[in-house]
């Protein structure tokens, strides 16, 4: 079971994002917590600190001139 999403912690996240939701919207959003936590677990692997994300720079001829 993921850690419980309290009303206070959801309010903090929404405040930090600058979003104002109705009480009904907040309650609905809270229902996604478990599934969202499962998604987050799926992308975490014991890959170590050297694993870089997928970003690469695409240098053009103009960049290198």
């Amino acid at each position: 079971m993921p850690p419980k999403l309290t009303d206070e912690s959801l309010d903090y996240l929404l405040d930090a994002a600058g979003l104002v939701l109705t009480a009904e919207q907040k309650a609905d959003l809270a229902t996604t917590h478990e599934a969202l936590t499962a998604m987050k677990a799926r992308v975490r692997k014991p890959r170590g600190r050297m694993a870089e994300p997928a970003h690469t720079f695409g240098y053009t001829a103009e960049d290198l001139a």
Binding site: L13, L14, A16, A17, L19, L21, Q25, D28, L29, T32, H33, L36, K40, R42, V43, R44, K45, R47, A51, E52, P53, A54, H55
Partner: peptide
């Protein structure tokens, strides 16, 4: 409601997903 989901995804969550993407 879907936009509000973004508030529940941290920068670290995002970058772990991008690492997984690679």
């Amino acid at each position: 409601r879907r936009l509000a989901l973004g508030a529940m995804v941290s920068a670290v969550d995002y970058l772990q997903a991008v690492r997984r993407r690679r």
